[in-house]
Structure formats: structure tokens, C-alpha cells
Computed example of a mutant assay.
Amino acid sequence: MNLKLQWRYFLLALGFFTRLPVPSFPDFQESDLNHSARYFPLVGVLVGLLAAVTWWLAALLFPASIAVLCSMAVTIYLTGAFHEDGLADSADGLGGGLDRKRKLEIMQDSRLGSYGAVALVGMLLFKFHTLSALPAAMLPFSLIAGHALSRLAAVYIMATTQYARPAGKSKPLATALTQNDLWFASVFGLWSWIGFASLLWLNHGGAGALRFLLLTALPVFLAWEWWRRLLLRNLQGYTGDTLGATQQLTELAFYLGLLAWSQLA
């Protein structure tokens, strides 16, 4: 494996999905971004880690709810609200368009419509209250696993559907994934989730850890499958905006599953 090339792919993924400074690549080719998709979940691990550190520092000085808000604000700043914007645009397009062409046109419009506003505000409120209800000891691990797993869900959308349009504001975008790309992405996306389960095994035994895996995997899969079918029915594929929406929906689904587990533990 060419480590220098892999580092380049990772930096491309980091620069595409965050505000963090990375070197410029004057010889950039679209195939590079295709391969960098394998590192999308790893970018999620980094974003989740920074959110967890922010939450921990804020919790030393402020009430728990303020600490959660601080962690959410950091993730939004780090990503430039990239995924939240995708959620809002997807809601506007799917909610306001009467046919496929019009839905795609609306999604390219940078203005925020009523469907997008409701989806965005609802998502932020839902996420805030869900995170605030989680046990404090679980929050750092929840943020890391949630951000990684949700970005893996977006990669799986890319792998199982086709790109809905040849050009648009989301270009350049990875549109062709190899089996190696999917394998790498799966490892990076699942290791924090499985590692979380391993920690729970120590305190809650094997049954508790298995219940955690089931109660978090099931809502993520159901949200992913529902969204995927909705995209195929309305757009015959995905766009950059709908990938952002995938990340937001599955991240929230993970937190909800985790909250259900904590209530039953």
C-alpha cells in the first residue's frame, strides 16, 4: 500500500468535509475523491472526537445542556454546516417538487424554504434533547461512534445507488467506489461502534453489549433503508445534498437507539 497516496486521499476527504486546513492539490483528479470516500467515516471519527473534547471541557464549567450545545456548535463549525445544509436542501426539494426534475432544481437553490427550515430546526432540537438525555459517561463515546457510523451510512448510499445528476453544486463528488474503498470505509465506520460495545461489555456483560448493538443498529438501518427507498422513488439516485441528509438522519437514529438502550439497561 502506498502510504503517501493514502495520506493524500485522507487529506482530500478531510478538506472536502471540514474547515480544517489541508494542503492544496493542484493535480487533483476526480478519481482521487472516489478513493478518498474510504476515509469519510474516519473524518467522522475526528469530528466526533473534537465534539467529545469540547463537551468534556464545557461540562467542567457549564450545565450539561450548555455543554451539549457547545459540542453541537463545534461540529457545525468544523463541517461548515455541510450536512445540515444537505438536510435542508433535501427536504425543500423532496417536499416542494412535483417531479424529479423540479425536485433536483429546488435542491440546487441556495435559498432556505419552509420544508428545509422545519427539517433543520427539528433535527437540531431532536438531536439536542436526545444527547442531553443520554448519561454523561456515555456522551463522548456516543459522539465519536455516531459521527463515524452516520458517515459510513452515507458511503453505503453511494455504493448502492447511482448519482442522480452529472453536475451540480455538490461536484466534485465521489461517484465510483471499489470493494477496497468499501472495506476500508466499513472498518473505519464500525470500529468505534464495536469498541463502544466492548466497553459496555465490561460494565453490563455480554447481554447488555449485544442489546446495545441491536438497539443502535436497528434504528440506523431502518432510517437508512427508508431514506434510500425515498431517494430511489423520487430522484432515482442520490446527490451530495441527500448524502448530507443521510448523515444527519442516521446520526440521530443512532443516538435514539442508544437512548432506548440506556433506558432499558
Rank of each mutant, 00 (worst) to 15 (best):
N2G: 06
L11C: 08
L12Q: 13
G15N: 04
T18I: 02
R19V: 01
R19L: 02
P21A: 00
P23A: 01
F25A: 05
P26F: 00
D27M: 10
Q29K: 13
E30G: 02
E30I: 00
S36L: 06
A37H: 06
Y39K: 06
Y39D: 09
F40Q: 01
V43K: 02
G44Q: 01
V45Y: 07
V47M: 01
V47W: 02
A52C: 08
V53E: 14
W55G: 01
F62V: 10
A67W: 07
V74M: 14
V74C: 10
T75D: 05
L78Q: 08
H83W: 05
D89G: 01
D92Y: 09
D99W: 06
D99E: 09
R100S: 06
L112C: 09
G113C: 05
Y115V: 05
M123R: 10
L125P: 06
T130R: 03
P135C: 12
M138Y: 11
G146K: 02
S150C: 12
S150R: 06
S150D: 12
R151Y: 08
V155R: 00
I157C: 04
M158P: 12
T175M: 05
A176N: 14
L177F: 09
D181K: 02
W183L: 15
A185W: 04
V187P: 08
F188G: 02
W191I: 14
S198Y: 14
A209L: 00
F212E: 12
L214Q: 13
L215E: 11
W227Q: 15
R228W: 05
D241S: 01
D241A: 01
T242C: 02
Q247P: 01
L249V: 14
F254C: 09
Y255H: 13
Y255C: 08
A260Y: 12
L264H: 09
